[in-house]
Design a protein around this nucleic acid. Structure first.
Length: 493
RNA sequence: GGCCCCAUCGUCUAGCGGCCUAGGACGCUGGCCUCUCAAGCCGGAAACGGGGAUUCGAAUUCCCCUGGGGCCA
């Protein structure tokens, strides 16, 4: 059997991370089985369409490196792949069911439907259609009068389907409504369209969130009415937010695009998502997998049945691992857009700044969890700093006067350096500390505050080299003034 | 509320009757390294929801309860 799976988003919003985890599973499975991955668009809910959703869906998948073989923008032998272009097919198929006696026309008014619903609810029952039109003779409801087409659901017995992970799941037919298949405006209902599309597109496996389990019997009934063989169902557990609830809008940043902007790498995200609800099993303790490894090792039977909570801690760690494994050139390319977005460097990168950027990359590489972290870590290189406080400029265990003397000495030292480079300044700085009878750490700490405006920064000398001699000296001068003023104002040395 | 699904450290998970005094990872934590912060290395705390049953033996099988989640209203 040729494996054919699909991702069928509605363009009513942007793909979010919970859905994408399931997409990753589908994609891994398709690639491993040398099958096809189809991207179909379910846009029959015309009222809720979001303008650029299609573009965002494409962008998100492309960014993640999840490619599809048929569908949106790709074409294929089973098109069209956009449901709004398939309305005629749904109408024809619905008519077929009527002709076969498996569905019937219903012209009950909205008022009548509301009345029965209220009545049933009042009795404490689940509201269902009462079947008034079900037993009307053929032709009682004319084809050209406003009406819907309903499925003739068996009144007794059970509907059972098989789930690869959970075995057989059954529901009593008495609990199933004579669902509407075709609405009065000629649009199909969701389940009719999906069944027809999955069948006509020869989808072999339907792998989706287990929140769809309750509606699967409805779908099976439609397959049975048509006399079609249903696909193989694999319901995967949901992805939950930190509160244990199904991941959704209320959980903040969940759109794929937001992860990109936050500085996560697609490879890290795919790796993380693949491990959310799945593991290679067999006592394997590997955590970092290339795409090829994931494709080779993905295995439906190792999908965990319990829902998984999405947690940023592990994603951050994993992302950091991927960042550390990049080459410096690669990382530089990835970092540039983030510096630009923050307004720290210009949009076409000025060539004069490139050496500085290159200098910074190895300094930040092992300090980044996300690419965006580079902004807060290196902003002092590109913009002026807030004048540090006296406290910050006073070395640990030192007096203000001693600190002032140290700053002055460092200025002199930096002025005299032949080469203003990290390598050239470390030795003399250490010697200076000895000379001043303070520890290197004391000296470095106070200089760090003076030139970066931060108590925490990338390695000091690399940072200083990146700032450049002129601006470093200016910041030291500022520090000197701050300390001097303090001494003059308070008389405290 | 009705129906359905699920249940191992805080989180992601390994485990598919004896190899389990339950393993790994993230996070947390102690230490080493160290110019700060990271990274790296070494160590630690931390879980089989409860009760029955089957079995010589149960985290692993069955039943009930509890808890969580989902769908529909």
């Amino acid at each position: 059997m040729t494996v054919r799976v699909r991702f069928a988003p509605s363009p009513t919003g942007y793909p979010h991370i919970g859905n994408i985890r399931t997409v990753v599973f589908n994609w891994l499975f398709a690639r491993q089985q040398h099958g096809k991955f189809v991207l179909r668009i379910e846009d029959t809910d015309q009222g809720r369409l979001v303008r650029d959703a299609l573009r965002v869906i494409e962008d998100s998948l492309q960014w993640l490196g999840i490619d599809w073989d048929e569908g949106l923008g790709k074409g294929g032998d089973y098109g069209p792949y956009i449901q709004s272009q398939r309305l005629q097919i749904y109408q024809d198929k619905a008519e077929e069911l009527v002709a076969m006696g498996r569905a019937y026309r219903c012209n009950c008014s909205q008022e009548r439907l509301d009345t029965i619903r209220d009545a049933m609810r009042a009795e404490g029952k689940t509201p269902m259609y009462d079947g008034l039109c079900r037993d009307k003779p053929e032709g009682a409801v004319a084809k050209d009068e406003p009406h819907v087409i309903r499925l003739r659901v068996p009144r007794e017995g059970m509907t059972t389907f098989h789930d690869v992970l959970r075995g057989d799941i059954s529901v009593e037919n008495a609990l199933l409504d004579d669902q509407v298949l075709l609405k009065s405006d000629g649009f199909p209902t969701y389940h009719l369209a999906v069944v027809i599309d999955d069948h006509l597109m020869a989808i072999s496996h339907v792998m989706r969130g287990d929140d769809w389990i309750p509606s699967t019997p409805k779908r099976i009934l439609i397959y049975q009415a048509f006399g079609w063989q249903p696909p193989i169902f694999i319901h995967v557990p949901l992805v939950l937010g930190a509160d244990g609830k199904k991941l959704g809008k209320r959980h903040g940043a969940t759109a794929v695009d937001e992860f990109r902007r936050a500085g996560y790498l697609p490879d890290a995200l795919v790796n993380f998502l693949a491990l959310l609800g799945w593991s290679p099993g067999d006592g394997d303790q590997q955590e970092i997998f290339t795409r090829e490894e994931l494709i080779a090792r993905f295995d439906i039977s190792h999908i965990n049945l319990a829902p998984a909570v999405f947690s940023y801690d592990k994603l951050d760690w994993l992302n950091g691992q991927y960042i550390r494994n990049m080459s410096e050139d690669e990382l530089l390319d990835q970092l540039i857009p983030f510096w630009q977005d923050a307004g720290l460097i210009e949009a076409p990168v000025a060539t004069e700044i490139v050496p500085t950027l290159r200098l910074l990359v190895p300094l930040v590489q092992e300090r980044l969890k996300t690419l965006r972290d580079v902004v807060a870590l290196t902003d002092f290189v590109f913009q002026e700093i807030e004048p540090p406080s006296v406290d910050a400029l006073t070395g640990k265990g030192m007096t203000v006067g001693e600190s002032l003397a140290a700053i002055v000495a460092v200025q002199r030292l930096f002025c005299g350096l032949v080469q203003f480079s990290a390598d050239a300044m470390e030795e003399p700085m250490r010697a200076l500390a000895t000379e001043l009878h303070i520890k290197a750490g004391q000296l470095f700490g106070l200089v760090r505050n003076a030139v970066t405006g931060k108590t925490v920064s990338p390695p000091l000398f690399g940072s200083i080299q990146a700032i450049g001699r002129e601006r470093t000296l200016k910041r030291l001068e500022t520090a000197e003034h701050i300390l001097l003023q303090h001494i003059e104002a308070t008389g405290n040395v």
